[in-house]
């Protein structure tokens, strides 16, 4: 399985400036990858192009055998008429029940499962949202700031858990946190503003998974590369 984009060019109708011009990159194998870039550079638009929500662009996207590509973002909400637990039950196939329980536990949500969505903190809400996406049928999941408002320690735990549980899936994690993407992601697609050539620079991340010691020097090197690419 591989995923590639070639010569993606896009601008919003009625806008004069291009968001993407001849944007190309390739992800060769499944794994936890990142989409990194300054605010307003078009990360969300790009995610929507990938998942087919935006169709008016030129260029080519090759998804190989991948059929279902999902986009999730951090402001999503669950309906308010029943508890979080009941909602999850309704939208997660029975076969995934044990996985669900495992994720709920790992994401630190076990005691909040009976609460209404609106009663949760922002960080908890984002985690609940992420769980329901993770247990859908998909080959690629774009996580747009999906762990916003979650404390650093929990985020690390969650990221490691996802990598551990879904090793054969494509992830595109949109985040502004250089350390986080450098440390946990396999490939970091650094998106730059439309005038720059190339518009995407791919940096190899450290791709840490469970039980590994952090090599500080290497991590710093990667971080520097990411920063340089985005500037």
């Amino acid at each position: 399985m591989r995923f590639s984009c070639r010569d993606i060019t896009f601008k919003y109708p009625d806008a004069s400036n291009y968001v993407f011009k001849n944007l190309s990159f390739e992800l060769t194998e499944p794994g936890f990858n990142a989409l990194f870039g300054p605010s307003g550079v078009g990360k969300t638009s790009f995610a929507k192009i990938i998942t087919g929500e935006i169709k008016e662009f030129s260029g080519e996207i090759s998804t190989d055998s991948m059929k279902i590509l999902l986009y999730s973002y951090n402001l999503e909400r669950l309906p308010g008429w029943s508890s979080v637990g009941k909602h999850l039950e309704k939208i997660i196939p029975l076969s995934q029940k044990s996985k669900k329980d495992e994720l709920v536990e790992a994401f630190g949500l076990k005691e909040f499962i009976g609460a209404r969505f609106s009663q949760l903190s922002l960080g908890q809400q984002n985690r609940v949202n992420l769980i329901r996406y993770l247990l859908q049928d998909f080959q690629m999941l774009i996580m747009d700031e999906s762990l916003a408002n979650v404390d650093e320690l929990t985020r690390e735990k969650i990221l490691l858990k996802i990598k551990d549980m879904f090793p054969q899936t494509f992830f595109l994690y949109i985040s502004h946190n250089v350390i986080e993407v450098s440390k946990f992601c396999k490939q970091i697609l650094v998106l730059r503003s439309a005038g720059k050539i190339p518009q995407v620079i791919t940096v190899e991340g450290e791709n840490y998974s469970t039980l590994q010691q952090v090599d500080k020097q290497k991590l710093e090197q990667t971080m520097l590369e990411v920063m340089n690419a985005s500037s």
Binding site: T51, L70, Y71, S72, Y73, L75, E76, R77, L78, P79, G80, W81, I91, N129, R132, Y133, Q136
Partner: peptide, 25 residues
């Protein structure tokens, strides 16, 4: 959008659900 998005992209949206969401909100 922030509620309906999930149901749309996962193919779960039905008109009844859409009305329920909008009425509830």
């Amino acid at each position: 959008t922030e509620i309906e998005h999930f149901y749309k992209v996962t193919g779960r949206m039905r008109w009844q659900l859409e009305i329920k969401i909008r009425a509830f909100e």
